[in-house]
Design a protein around this nucleic acid. Structure first.
Lengths: 150, 150
DNA sequence: CTAACTGCAAAGTGTTTGCACTCTT
DNA sequence: AAGAGTGCAAACACTTTGCAGTTAG
């Protein structure tokens, strides 16, 4: 269901890091490989636990610093643009979201603004869906304008 | 674009709270109305700021406790099931998510598993979409089984 | 040799909890 | 009167930051 997650060779990694402007350290390499091997959308803590098997002396701070470096370099992404603070929803109807990834503004789209989403495949065994929601990510008008100026 | 957000009358609120098993207090009422008036998916902090205009002595703790009460009662929802902890994404391709709201597991669906999402309307002025992602929420097989037992 | 990275500990956020007091029912 | 809710402060969980020592380029 996922591409085979071919663990990249040392040399490929060297290049990847260099292109991202990151120097090649043992910790960094092990961290990167660990995340690639975990197909499970891991948390920093989960990555830390896994990597400790290989580098027992690694610190959680290093894990966080490297995750941030990977994110900034576009080597990794965050699942949700709203981790960090709780955001509340008043509209209990089925609806969708337009999210500005810069200022975090959320705008609702009504369900009827979209053609219904249709699955072409079966869902993984036994998963019971309650509802779905489409999230469009991008920049709102004012953030888009600001980013053009730079 | 949103239903008129008719601020509920005192009596309607009394009933709403009673049905939710919540007693009717001044703070609660002002909080609830404030959230309904803010069509902006507010954070707890934003709600606190707004409500302080009306009840300067209210505490942030009370705001959090009431938000939790509203969430538990289904009067409010969280925008993201993953606020709280950073979750990382290895798959940089366009794809979608199946999320178990109980154990927070995330499973990827490939883009080709879905018919393309089609908008029936214009996006609000000037919004620039980079990508979109469909999030199916529900219970995974094992969590579904566990919840049947209770 | 210099700049970047690591480990550790301290500081920051955002959120929950415990407790004495007050208000709703 | 009993139970629920409030305010305040302390405790927590998650994440970032600062710094001295180490390593990569």
């Amino acid at each position: 269901m996922q591409p085979p997650a071919a663990t990249p060779s040392m040399d490929e990694l060297r290049r990847t890091f260099r292109e991202a402007g990151l120097s090649f350290t043992h910790q960094r390499m092990v961290l990167y490989r660990a995340v690639q091997e975990m197909r499970s959308h891991p948390s920093p803590e989960a990555i830390y636990e896994k990597v400790r098997g290989e580098i027992p002396s690694i610190s959680l701070g290093t894990v966080y610093k490297n995750i941030r470096a990977f994110l900034d370099a576009g080597l990794l992404r965050e699942v949700s643009p709203h981790h960090g603070t709780l955001r509340l929803e008043t509209n209990l109807e089925e609806h969708h979201h337009l999210v500005c990834t810069r200022c975090k503004t959320i705008v609702d789209l009504e369900e009827t603004d979209l053609e219904p989403v249709r699955l072409k495949c079966q869902l993984p065994g036994g998963f019971r869906v309650d509802r779905y929601n489409v999230e469009f990510r991008g920049l709102c008008a004012s953030c888009a304008k600001m980013s053009e100026l730079s």
